[in-house]
Write a protein that binds this DNA or RNA. Sequence first.
DNA 1: CTGAAAGCGCTTACAG
DNA 2: CTGAAAGCGCTTACAG
Lengths: 341, 341
Amino acid sequence: MSKKPTMQDVATHANVSIATVSYVLNGVKKVSDKTKEKVFESIRELNYYPDSSAVSLSRRKSNLIGILIPMLGDSPAAMFKKNIYYNEFVSGIEVISRKNNYDTMISGVAEPEDVKGWVKKRNLDGLIYIGELPENLYEELIQLDVPLVLIDTYAKEAANYNNVRIQDERGGYLATKHLIELGHTKVAFVPTNLQTSPVDLHRMNGYRRALSESGIAFDEDLVFESYDVKFEQPALVNRIVTADPAPTGIVTVSDVLAIGVINELKKLGKSVPDDYSVIGFDDLIISEYITPPLTTVRQDIFTKGRTAAELVIASIEEESHGHNTVVLPVELVERESTRKL
Amino acid sequence: MSKKPTMQDVATHANVSIATVSYVLNGVKKVSDKTKEKVFESIRELNYYPDSSAVSLSRRKSNLIGILIPMLGDSPAAMFKKNIYYNEFVSGIEVISRKNNYDTMISGVAEPEDVKGWVKKRNLDGLIYIGELPENLYEELIQLDVPLVLIDTYAKEAANYNNVRIQDERGGYLATKHLIELGHTKVAFVPTNLQTSPVDLHRMNGYRRALSESGIAFDEDLVFESYDVKFEQPALVNRIVTADPAPTGIVTVSDVLAIGVINELKKLGKSVPDDYSVIGFDDLIISEYITPPLTTVRQDIFTKGRTAAELVIASIEEESHGHNTVVLPVELVERESTRKL
DNA sequence: CTGAAAGCGCTTACAG
DNA sequence: CTGAAAGCGCTTACAG
């Protein structure tokens, strides 16, 4: 095959200097229209594409955005693999990035040191981090001085960065309120892990607000941590069905959990929504198609990804490294996993 | 923040030339152990990471692998977004790539010209393409002379590249055979699109083989193209339930389709597996947790991704641009969406 | 409006 | 075993 044409080839072909080609390409300086025309013509004919390694090197800008996905346990991919959620999220980032001429790379986060290395090595222009950032990573990242967007974070350090979150408190509130309105008074709350997940804590605040608004006392015995976002939840569900007081409604912090809970309940011969009303959180694509179709709190994960990408890119291009926080709305979607008591 | 250290900084710090640093880093030439030690020491102290733009530029190698995802309709992401499948696949690629010091980028494929541009721009070392490659893309890619792995392709041109496929024919066979063994004689086959999908055609060959093996005549009227891999399938299912002959078993080419079919059947008051036995294909993570748990033909998508990555990387590093074809096994997973007639 | 030249941070023959 | 220097393909002051 023929070697890839360089800027020099274009310059020669157009009978100008490479500086001029560069100017034309970057829309910089006033280049005469005829020259511009010639150059574009040559670019087209030679089918020229600027070499981004060279561009990155000389411009100190890679047009690369890194997406950091926290690891749960072993491999970064395992996380990505299991969590249907990331699919849409990454998708949103991808769309906006491409539109703005950025490419995206994904990496699992193991050691903070690795992240730093990655950013430096690849000259990443910006970073999107999903979830609570480990303390030590904050320090590393500050040193890196790279535009950063934090997703679903409530850490105080987060205030120094861009943030995209959703109305977590309101989500918990809406879900609980819904069950209460349906006549449920014994409502369980199923977070992942209250120690490690501020998001869960905020949703629980909403849960508590809804309870107290209706004069229902908060009961610790109705909070069941699952510790793991996965479909298999025998232990969790066992605790729920044997709980005292016995709940009739279950507010969950994710659709995956809700599906898991419904599944285990079925195994125990219980019916949803006849015996238990269950609410999810997220509204995954699949949630409408399970049995029963899941009542859930919808968040627009795709938009979350888009917003995150828009924020990093703005931050990169303004050189302002601003810290904006965008809180996206949530909404209750009533389907058939909840019923009037 | 302090500027990122360069190789020069390391050289100065270690009191050697940058050439030596480079040699040490690349394990090339025989550098004395003391020197090596000094250099590594400096690298550690300065927390140095080679700039990959510079490396790419001088070594003409980006250590970047591009994943091409075909677009269905509008945005590339839309595809990625909807198809739960890609999640695992990309995950597999990612794991192997990272282990081999490659990063991966994902792009939707719109115009073949765009792909070419992307490869040239980013100096991609290798490419993984999912699905049937448009004719004109073959030509473009040949010119690019970049290691390529084709996934699930049956085009004759594909023989010139690396391929990863699964036992499609066998999958169709196993699914159909299973239904026949359960006593079904009127078995429907639901492909996506026989015109555009050789994969579907191969699975149908398996379907036909199982039929003929049992002395059941193939009946065109029992083939129902869905034309779209999505959960909503009212028209499709309407055709199925009103078909003559009336099928009792349904072999489907994807879990998404199967879930869609089951869903529509329920809406029509039909029960699975009581009225219809339905089989999927893929065995998505979710498929075990829907109602009824889906009987399906499992393929290991994660391994498919891993294999694809291994092939490109081998191809990149051997400079041999080989064309190996790996056919991964499939296996029938019996769950509860099928029953004895 | 256009170009010569230095520089971005590496790699790699070539000398020694 | 080690280093000086050219080169990878761009960008960008600086001159003109």
